[in-house]
Design a binder for these strands. Structure first.
Lengths: 251, 251
DNA sequence: AAAAAACATTCCAAATACTGCAAATTCTTA
DNA sequence: TAAGAATTTGCAGTATTTGGAATGTTTTTT
C-alpha cells in the first residue's frame, strides 16, 4: 500500500472517531508500525492531526485551548466517549444550550441536522462547527474572550434570559463534594450559572481529572446538574452520589 | 497501446480510486514502467494529477481552484486594497462596527491590537479572526445563517441597539444611484440598516462589480455612507458624486 | 515507589522507486 | 524499402521508503 493511500486512510479514520490507535491503523493498512509512525509524523507536520501517546487525535480549531491537551490516547478517548454519551441524551426537537469549551465541542460531531435541534451556544468555534453541520444555531451576544473564544459578560447574561432550554451541557474545571462546580473565570462562571438557571435539565461533562478539584469561582451546587464522567473509584463515587446523579461512561 | 490511450486509462483509474500504483497501471496498459512514468510526468505538468512516490493521486478540487486564481487575482487585489484603505480610516480608541462578509473580513489583517479598538461584529469568522489578533471584540447575539456564518434576526437588531459606533464598515451586493444600497437577504438587510443608524460615520466597501447593481432588499440611501471602491469611469462617477462621497482606491 | 508493560525514537540494511540516458522498436515518409 | 523521426524500453546509478532491532520515555500495574 502506498504512503499516500495510508495517509488518506488515517485521515478518514479520524473523521469518524476523533481518536485512532496506532495498532488499529497498522491492522487496517497492513504495514509496519514504523511506517504508520512516519505517516503520523508527516500528517502532524502538515497540521492535519495531533499525535498522542498510542495514536493520534483530530485537530480542531480550539486546539490551542488548555483543556483538550490530553496527551495520551486514553485521555482523549475518555473525553470523546463522555461527549458521545452526552450527545445521546439529546432528543429530536430539543432546544439545547452548549457551553463553550472543548468537552462540549466534542459533542458536535455526534449531532446531526436530521434531529431538528436548536442549539444556543456562547462558543464561537462551536457555532461555526454547528453551522457546518447545518444545525440551527443561536449565538448569544457579548464580549469575546480572545483566549478561549467564548462569549462572556453582562450582555451575555442578559442575552441568555431571552431563552429557555430543555437541556444544557457545560464543562467545568472543578467538581467537588463540598464546593460544587467551579471555574477560574468570574465572567464565564456568571454565564454558566445563568445557563443552568434557564434550563430544565443540566449536564456537566467532566473527565476524571476534574473530579475532587476546586477552582476559583463557584458556578453551582452539585445538585444543580447531572455529572457525566468516566468510571470512578467507589470511595470517590460515594461522596457524590447522595448529592446528585452520576453517569459513568466506559471508554 | 498509444500514449494518448494510456493517459486516458490512467485518468479513468483515478476517477474511481483517488490513488493509483505505478505497477497497477503497468499491468493494465501492458507497457514498461518508463512509459508510464513519462505519462505521469506529462499529466502532472498539465495539472491533471499529482505524482506521489509509487504512483499518482487525484488533484483535489481545492488545489485545483488555487490554480484557477489567475483569473480572479485582479479581483482579490482589488478587494485587498479597498480593505486596506478602509482599515486606514480607523483611528486609535475607535469603536467600530464590522459587518459580516468577505470585504470586511479582508480589513482585519490591517488592524492591530496596539490601536486599542473595540470592534463589534455579526460575523462569526470575523470575531474569530479578531480574537486571534488580540483585538477587543464584541459579538452581537442572534441566529446564525449556516451559509454565510453571519448572525442575523430580530435578536441581532435588538442587540445592536445597545451600542453606538464611531465608524461602521459594511459590504453590499448592489450600489445604485436610484435604489441605493441593496442586498438579497431581508434579515441581513435589517441588521445592516440598524448598524448604519447606530454609527456616526458609515463606509460601504464595494468593488466595481457591485456598482450599478441592484439586489432584492434596500438597506439605505446612498447618502447614508461613504463608498470605498476602485477607480471608476468618469461617467459613472458623476451619477454618484452629487449624492455621496466616493473614495477611489487604486489597486 | 519500583517494576513491568506499552509506546516512541533513532538508526540501519534491504527493498523499492526514481532519474536520465542510450539502445531498440515502431511509425513516417520519400 | 530504407532512412529518419518519434516513441518505447531497459539499464545503471541515485534517492526514497520500508520493516526491524536497539535504546529511551511514558504509562500502567503491583
Amino acid at each position: 500500500m502506498l504512503a499516500e493511500e495510508r495517509q488518506q486512510v488515517i485521515l478518514s479514520m479520524l473523521k469518524t472517531s476523533s481518536v485512532v490507535k496506532l495498532q488499529d491503523i497498522c491492522k487496517k493498512v497492513t504495514c509496519s508500525e514504523s511506517s504508520v509512525r512516519r505517516d503520523l509524523q508527516l500528517l502532524e507536520e502538515k497540521g492535519l492531526l495531533i499525535r498522542v501517546h498510542g495514536g493520534a487525535k483530530v485537530k480542531h480549531s480550539l486546539q490551542r485551548e488548555l483543556d483538550m491537551t490530553g496527551k495520551s490516547l486514553r485521555n482523549v478517548q475518555q473525553k470523546s466517549s463522555i461527549a458521545k454519551f452526552a450527545a445521546e441524551q439529546i432528543q429530536d426537537e430539543d432546544v439545547v444550550y452548549l457551553d463553550a469549551g472543548t468537552s462540549t465541542l466534542a459533542m458536535i460531531q455526534f449531532l446531526h441536522s436530521g434531529q431538528h435541534l436548536t442549539v444556543v451556544t456562547n462558543g464561537v468555534v462551536h457555532a461555526s462547527a454547528l453551522a457546518d453541520r447545518n444545525i440551527r444555531t443561536i449565538l448569544v451576544g457579548g464580549e469575546l474572550k480572545t483566549t478561549t473564544k467564548a462569549i462572556v459578560g453582562i450582555e451575555t447574561v442578559n442575552s441568555l434570559h431571552h431563552y429557555r432550554f430543555n437541556k444544557a451541557f457545560l464543562g467545568t474545571n472543578g467538581v467537588h463534594p463540598r464546593f460544587g462546580y467551579t471555574t477560574p473565570d468570574p465572567d464565564e462562571a456568571a454565564v454558566k450559572k445563568t445557563a443552568l438557571d434557564q434550563s430544565e435539565k443540566n449536564y456537566i461533562l467532566a473527565d476524571e481529572s476534574k473530579i475532587d478539584q476546586v477552582s476559583f469561582v463557584k458556578v453551582a451546587e452539585l445538585a444543580k446538574a447531572i455529572i457525566i464522567t468516566n468510571r470512578l473509584p467507589k470511595t470517590v463515587l460515594d461522596q457524590y452520589s447522595d448529592q446528585t446523579t452520576i453517569q459513568e461512561v466506559s471508554i
